[in-house]
Design a protein around this nucleic acid. Sequence first.
DNA 1: CTGAAAGCGCTTACAG
DNA 2: CTGAAAGCGCTTACAG
Lengths: 344, 344
Amino acid sequence: MKHRARIADVASLAGVSVATVSRTLSNPDSVKPATRERVQRAIDELNYFMDGSARALASGHGHTVGMVVPTLDNSIFALAVQGLQTTLAAHGYQLLIAAHEYNLETEAQQVRALLETRIDALVLVGTHHAETTWDLVRRSRTPLLVAWAAHESYPSVAFDNRLIGQLAAEHLIALGHRQFGMISGYTRHNDRARQRAEGFIDTLRRNDIAFDKRNLIEQPFGFAGGRTGWARLMQLPVPPTAIFCGNDVLAMGCMFEAQKHGVQLPRDLSIVGCDNLPIVSHLPPGLTTVQLPTYELGIECAHSILEWIEKDVQPVSVCLDIELIVRGTTSHPPKMPTAISANK
Amino acid sequence: MKHRARIADVASLAGVSVATVSRTLSNPDSVKPATRERVQRAIDELNYFMDGSARALASGHGHTVGMVVPTLDNSIFALAVQGLQTTLAAHGYQLLIAAHEYNLETEAQQVRALLETRIDALVLVGTHHAETTWDLVRRSRTPLLVAWAAHESYPSVAFDNRLIGQLAAEHLIALGHRQFGMISGYTRHNDRARQRAEGFIDTLRRNDIAFDKRNLIEQPFGFAGGRTGWARLMQLPVPPTAIFCGNDVLAMGCMFEAQKHGVQLPRDLSIVGCDNLPIVSHLPPGLTTVQLPTYELGIECAHSILEWIEKDVQPVSVCLDIELIVRGTTSHPPKMPTAISANK
DNA sequence: CTGAAAGCGCTTACAG
DNA sequence: CTGAAAGCGCTTACAG
């Protein structure tokens, strides 16, 4: 045998019609057991593998969903993808994955490529996307699920990103802090980052605490961003005693840099991060963080999508619970801003 | 318009044949510019998106490759996947991804599902797979590329896992250590882990250093595994002064637990990990590690696959360079094993 | 429970 | 440079 066996080969070897082979494959119960067995033997003997593209074309859907994430190199997205993939696989669906590395144009390209693969549904992270991306989604009429943040017209599986900032602010205020800083990812093209910052700042203001724009440092995600952020904040006329970081990687960078300069956590400085990465619980205490159930987000996305595709009912948007995880914090801020030089 | 436009709709609106539309899409240069433009206008007007499954069926390949990794929740695999995906995307290919969470049976299922999607090629991590998996690959005749470890009959893009163990051993021997321990992932179903252990132990033996099997602790990957590993090693009659860990997560866990018990790194203990995770360079010095270029591995996999699929030439196996990254180590081991209780 | 046949939406020699 | 037509390998009413 030179080539892949086709369904017709199986049919003739088993002495049945192609329709019966097809049924054996997709709806075994509708075939008499004896026939089913003969078909199965023929399949094994011929090393028959169904051709997914032919099935997709004939049946009208490809059992495939596409997702494009900013990056896989962050537990937070990796876990969500894994939760999504695992759940989809259990229901016979495949996952096409793409990363755009925080470039919205790249994202649009990846989305276009995915849409031409006839995916049954598309998952995008957040609500801020290139106009091209929105246009493609609209035109293609592919079901779109928004993850991580709520959208007003598309269904979503989200976290309340403003609440994250609020929890951080409330926690730090309760500890007695009055001088705040924040280290964030770039908010311009990142709705999650923007909402977290807004939630934080609004909560401060609602508590009659002034927050100057200069106390918000925007940095690329990464340890280096956290380090730079800390250094910048310490150069302010009145350095903060409490810092909220947009995620744990920034928070750890901030912490590492502070410690390098002799700052004692949590005595001299309170830091709140976000994500509750596994490693955080292994580091010396001092880092409080907001836990986001991202693996569950992936699973939830899968359920929403399956319902949408298979029952044709547009899923309702859901918002997942988050939790502040406190790991050793002083009950009050230092009396006065610790005087520390940010120079090496 | 109720439904997705098809190529025939575009053709009639543009006043050309479907063949011409098809050419405009896949080989624009073979179409007169004026015609091309008319077709493009029709495409835009009708919101036409090509149906990937029909194209795949008609043309014979789906521009899709599949990869199944142990987990995405480890920078090391996430980076490789990202390198692979990015490179494939640049050449018009999609990536179907699946994770098996270190379960070989799950892997076999994922592989089966992928093979029925008519992927152009499959990437698997390592050489140890369920018999079912091998059988499926053979039967389906899908090009298989092995990543991370070399295989004798399939092409691979690999690291020399034995060399990793060897580098670690040589480094530690050169420092003057004579009592060694190793914390590894489970070697039974993991060829990378096994080869690293073998490389380490063989190098010790070649240097006339005895290594008792009990000094090899197998643990699940994770910080907890590293912690347990350290505790176990410290209970040995003669605790090691140097520990090689199968990866950085284990190494960090080992380090955290040692520090918790008052051990000073690198004064009292030398640890060597593997992977060179970004965070390692931010932790207090003391952790030496072996750097594996995993993003490059992903890119290299993509190139091998593209060559294989498009030129039909089976790629040659390649082995990527690795490098020992030393971050603060004593030049000699402690005079005698530090007496530390592993009890909490 | 099973079969014959139309059709899914493209691509690709083959002519012109 | 363009078109007519066969064919890719399945699924799915429709009959029986």
